[in-house]
C-alpha cells in the first residue's frame, strides 16, 4: 500500500520558519486529522504535500517516489487531490462543469483533436460527465447539475469542491478546513462523506479547527504548534495530552 509522506519538512518565508522538521504520514484508507492553533503551519504543510509550496528541507514522498520539487500538476496526475479553505470554484460555470474539471488527468485529447471533435474527444467528455454526475449525485448535488456555481450556498460549494477532487480518482485527498462555515447538521453529513472516502480506500488528510469533529472522525491525529510537531497519536492520546491541552485545547 502506498502512503503519502512528509519527512522532516521545513518551510521558511523570509525570516519566519513556518514549519520546522515536521514529519507526517497519510496511509490509504485512513483519516489523518491535522490540528493546531492559528499560524501553527497546518495549511503550509498541506501546501507542501500538494505542491503549491516546495520544501526548503526534508522531502515529500509517495512511498519510494520523491515528490520534493514536483509541480502541483504532476502530483495531481499521481492522484493527490485537494480542496481549499475558501472554495475555489468557477463561478460562471455550471456545477457539472466544475466537477468535470477534476477528471482532467483521465483525458488525453489535446487542442488539435478537440478542434476537430474527433470521436475520442466526445468519448472522453461523456466519460467525465458520467463520472462527475455520479459523484455529484452521491454528494447530494444531483439536483443542481446545471446551476451556475456562484449561485450555490456555502455548504454546496464545499461539497462541490470535494466532488471536483474526487473526479480526479484520488489516492489521497487533502481537505483544508472543509467544515468551515458549515452548520452542525451539515458537518454531520460532511462526516458521513469523509467516512465513505476512507472506506473507499482513499487516504484523507483533514486540516480542521473544529476539534470535536476531528477527534470524532480521525484514525490518527497530528497536532502542530508554532511550526513544530506537538503530539502525534490516536485521537484519545492526543486529546488527553497535557501539552496539547495547555497550548491548544484549553482546560
Amino acid at each position: 500500500m502506498t502512503a503519502l509522506l512528509a519527512e522532516r519538512v521545513s518551510k521558511r518565508f523570509g525570516g519566519l520558519t513556518a514549519l520546522d522538521a515536521v514529519s507526517l504520514t497519510v496511509e490509504p484508507g485512513e483519516v489523518h486529522g491535522l490540528i493546531g492553533p492559528n499560524g501553527s503551519g497546518k495549511t503550509t504543510l498541506l501546501n507542501l504535500l500538494s505542491g503549491f509550496y516546495q520544501v526548503d528541507e526534508g522531502s515529500v514522498r509517495l512511498d519510494a517516489e520523491d515528490l520534493s520539487g514536483a509541480a502541483v500538476q504532476r502530483r495531481a496526475r499521481l492522484g493527490i487531490a485537494r480542496t481549499f479553505q475558501k472554495p475555489r470554484l468557477l463561478g460562471s460555470q455550471t456545477v457539472l462543469e466544475n466537477a468535470m474539471l477534476g477528471g482532467w488527468r483521465d483525458r488525453s485529447a489535446g487542442l488539435l483533436s478537440t478542434a476537430l471533435s474527433l470521436p475520442r474527444v466526445r468519448r472522453e467528455q461523456r466519460m467525465l460527465r458520467d463520472r462527475a454526475a455520479e459523484l455529484l449525485a452521491g454528494l447530494g448535488l444531483g439536483h443542481a447539475l446545471n446551476r451556475r456555481a456562484n449561485l450555490l450556498e456555502h455548504a454546496e460549494q464545499r461539497f462541490l469542491e470535494i466532488a471536483r477532487a474526487l473526479a480526479l480518482r484520488p489516492r489521497f485527498i487533502l481537505l483544508d478546513e472543509p467544515a468551515g462555515g458549515l452548520t452542525g447538521a451539515e458537518i454531520e453529513r460532511l462526516g458521513a462523506v469523509i467516512r465513505t472516502l476512507r472506506d473507499g480506500g482513499i487516504g484523507v488528510l483533514l486540516v480542521e479547527h473544529h476539534t470535536e469533529f476531528v477527534f470524532g472522525i480521525s484514525d490518527r491525529v497530528t497536532t502542530l504548534n508554532l511550526g513544530r510537531l506537538l503530539r502525534h497519536g490516536t485521537p484519545q492520546e492526543v486529546r488527553n495530552d497535557p501539552e496539547v491541552i495547555r497550548v491548544y485545547l484549553g482546560a
Binding site: 455520479e134 452521491g138 454546496e156 465513505t196 473507499g200
Partner: peptide
Amino acid sequence: LEPDTERLAAAIRKGR
C-alpha cells in the same frame, strides 16, 4: 444537501 453515501461509495469504487 443530503449525500447518498452508498451511491458515493459506488462512484469511488468505480474510479478505483
